[in-house]
Amino acid sequence: MKILLLGGSTKPGTTEYHFTQALRNLGHEVKTLCYADNLTRTRYDLIRFTLESPMRRIGLNTSFMNLFRRTILETLKKWRPDLCLIVKGEFLSKQMLEEIHEYCNIPLYDTDVPRFILKTGSLIEILLSTHLQEALDYIDLIATPSKKCVQIYQKLGARKAVHIPFACNPQMHYVPLREKKLKTVLFAGALYPRRTKILRELIKRRLPIMIYTGSKIQSKLLNKWVRKPVWGRKFALLHNISRIGLNIHIESDLTWKANMRTFEIPASGTLLLTDNTEVVKEYFIPRKEIETWDTFDELIEKIDYYLSLSLEDILSMIENGQKRAIKEHTYGHRMMRLIESLKIRAA
């Protein structure tokens, strides 16, 4: 099958990158058009801010997006794909979706919807819902990593909505188990308020934590412990040499979806220590494949406990988590479900 993938960036570690690799591994021919791939960081940040503002999401356009639109239409005319897979879709207006739909089916994978539907009844939510309802007229399938959002999309009028969680990419994240590991806790990711608060407290307790982030650091305490951000294979290798991989969901994800690290950390061959949510329990068994925490005091207690054990004592849990991730939670599994949900037979 010929698939045109539209997104923000195919940089290693992004959802777009993982989808592309998985689809090609499944035998599909994939072309990607991502608006940020050839932009400087400053230009990218400026455009992303414009695209992700509420006003952009109710249909405003930019000159940059008009240029991107022409590139999309030229590719559709020349290449004639069987479907156009859109990741997130913050860059697409109703007009662009209508034009794309004249050429092929459109599945949309929306990663961030929960953040925009948390406060019901607000003016912004009404505007977003109206814009989304209009967009759904041209979307054949909408997929979401949040099971709760399936019902929301259905109420908004989606033709078909399915739950497709994030996953791991074995080619990037799988690393064989090590016989030796550093007695360290590793956190890699953006420093949202909840994460910053928790990490500050861990540092105050003088725990052996390594923090990798690209976020701007306002705290002098945190600044001494922070290292440059890591993605892709380096993300997996650094987790592999650490005893514990710490996962802290951002506030708006807690009850909505399991984030990417929920699957990437176990695949890398280290112990996943993550916030205890019902969402996470859908994918892994606590105390057998991963470990969870409810309160900050419990987090401290479990870090101390697992660092005090020998690696042999926790190796079976790490191995179980890795096996589960590779066996059931890869992007290959997710893309097969997406294609099957569209009911389009692969060429």
Rank of each mutant, 00 (worst) to 15 (best):
K228G: 12
Y283E: 09
N223K: 14
K220D: 15
S252R: 13
Y192T: 11
E282F: 08
P266A: 00
W225E: 12
W231C: 07
E298A: 00
K257Y: 07
G245H: 08
L199M: 10
G245R: 09
L222S: 04
A258Y: 05
I244Y: 04
K216N: 06
K234E: 15
N240E: 07
F235R: 00
R227N: 15
K228D: 14
K228N: 15
N240V: 11
N276L: 00
S252F: 15
L238T: 08
G214D: 08
L273D: 02
I290Q: 01
G214W: 09
Q218G: 10
Y212E: 01
F284G: 01
I250K: 14
K216A: 06
N240S: 10
K220I: 03
E251A: 09
T295S: 14
K197D: 09
I211S: 04
L207H: 07
L237M: 14
A236N: 13
E201I: 04
A258E: 06
L254I: 13
D275E: 14
P208H: 02
N247A: 04
V279M: 01
G214L: 10
N240A: 05
D294N: 13
R206N: 15
L222P: 13
T262H: 03
N240L: 07
I209L: 11
I244E: 09
R233P: 15
K224Q: 15
Y192F: 12
L221V: 12
N247K: 03
I248R: 01
A236C: 12
N223T: 14
E278Q: 13
A267E: 01
I211V: 13
L221I: 14
P208W: 02
L273E: 05
E264S: 03
I244D: 03
S252P: 01
R200F: 02
F235W: 07
V230S: 13
F235I: 00
L199T: 13
L191P: 12
L199D: 09
G269N: 09
K224H: 13
W225Q: 11
S242T: 15
L273C: 03
S242H: 12
E291R: 07
L191V: 10
K216S: 08
N259D: 13
Y283Q: 06
T196M: 10
I285A: 12
F296E: 13
D253Q: 10
L199Y: 06
E291L: 08
D297L: 09
I290M: 01
K220T: 07
S268E: 01
I217T: 12
N259Q: 11
S268G: 04
L202A: 04
E278V: 04
E264Y: 04
W256A: 11
L222R: 03
A236Y: 10
I290T: 06
I198A: 06
H249Q: 11
R195S: 07
I248C: 01
E278R: 09
N276M: 00
R233E: 15
L271A: 02
I203N: 04
R287A: 01
L191S: 02
K257E: 11
W225S: 09
T270C: 07
S219R: 02
K288P: 08
V279T: 06
